[in-house]
Nucleic acid binder design. Structure first.
Lengths: 224, 224
DNA sequence: GCCATAAGTTAGTGGAAGCTAACTTTCTAT
DNA sequence: ATAGAAAGTTAGCTTCCACTAACTTATGGC
């Protein structure tokens, strides 16, 4: 039994699919064709095509008309790409002064071109970070991901003081807005009020009071 | 008359071809199909195919059976890629401690993925270098390349003291060897002897004497 | 339990870039 | 001056990854 480190040279699109499937799986068992398609901005038929190829390569298990799941090999490849992505994001902000709303797109391209050596050197240069600038945990070199159970901000009871842990990294405009409000990982906030029927939520951030919609609050993860 | 900054999104292979054509042109008017093919490690027929596409895009002028030359647009695109490549090389050595024999391959991939913003930030972070680690000049943002007229080390007369300006960046093994000998850009060397018939050349490097073959000496560029 | 709609798949096409094999043009050496 | 070698091209194929159009399967509301 060999644990041969086969490096089958995945293409950039393949890495993108695996990453997306991994993230969709995290939020509910299997990933659907249409979900994958809309996340990647691609036609559903294109996904069916790629799904065949990924299954042939042993990276996913596919049950026709039922959805898709990563195999062990697929999960490892996905985590490798996610590690690259997040280390690049962290490096760009810490070492090159990138604003946090612009690192995602850059990392999206670099993650497919950077060697393992580069990723390791970047990580070392900024002190082996454990999360990216948006608070997402960075998988280790051997593919372990430390996912903490977090609450969304819209579910926090009124009066509680919580610590912002993580926000979505995809929407640049949203990130710019959150930065303006001072809502970023590490920041403590207190929930002052929550209007019913998915109404706005009032927060104390530092010594200021801010009010955000329930939709936005749902994309902010907090912990104790 | 508009100087519209059209960004026609060149593919990575296209950028590679343009770069190689630029470099081949520098050493003799036109670039030949076979030269391009062997430099890129590709079949001559593949070059013919790509040449058609590049000509269609107005990046090169092609005279059938005669060779290929960059147009103004092609030259600009080539210089842009070369700038990226060399800044990345410089950044990797200066900011991330890369050894100079391993930056070429890394840059070869990153140059197609990095945004202009990233390149500019890298350059700024290491003090706007004017040459890469192998001594090659870095084109400016607007596509000006300051090529100094240099001599190859094998042509230097015995007794002369010269300054190493530039060495080839493609061959990693050669770079490791040169580093071992202490022959790198900025180093002063004195030619002690030169055997006839392309024989070996003896040098004083620092306080040591080193002897190298004429072939290697031909790939070392020196100035006063 | 049936059927409309949502979800997923297949078939066929297109473009980019590579390949081999076979051909044509140019160059060079006698 | 010309034949053979070297250089360049064409034709035809392959793989990857996207697309549209048309089809099939699954599901949920009545």
């Amino acid at each position: 039994m060999s644990t041969t480190r086969t490096i089958p040279e995945l293409t950039a699109p393949v890495e993108d699919y695996l990453k997306v499937i991994f993230e969709l799986e995290a939020g509910g068992g299997v990933a659907g064709t249409n979900e994958i398609a809309s996340t990647l901005g691609v036609a559903p038929a294109s996904v069916s095509g790629m799904v065949r190829r990924l299954a042939d390569q042993g990276l996913i298990a596919h049950e026709r008309y039922r959805g898709v799941q990563l195999t062990k090999a697929g999960r490892l490849a996905a985590l490798r790409t996610i590690r690259r992505h997040r280390i690049i994001e962290a490096y760009l902000t810490t070492a090159l002064g990138y604003p946090w709303d612009r690192v995602h797109d850059e990392a999206e391209r670099l993650e497919h071109a950077a060697s393992d050596e580069l990723i390791d050197r970047m990580a070392a240069a900024i002190g082996e970070p454990t999360t990216d600038p948006h608070g997402a945990p960075i998988p280790t070199r051997d593919g372990t991901l430390d996912e903490q159970p977090l609450q969304t901000l819209d579910a926090v009871e009124v009066g509680a003081r919580v610590c912002v842990q993580r926000v979505g990294d995809r929407d640049a405009e949203q990130l710019r807005y959150l930065a303006e409000l001072g809502i970023m990982p590490g920041r403590r906030v207190e929930v002052l009020a929550r209007a019913p029927f998915d109404g706005p939520i009032s927060l104390r951030v530092g010594r200021l009071t801010r009010t955000i919609g329930a939709g936005l609050a749902k994309r902010i993860l907090v912990g104790p």
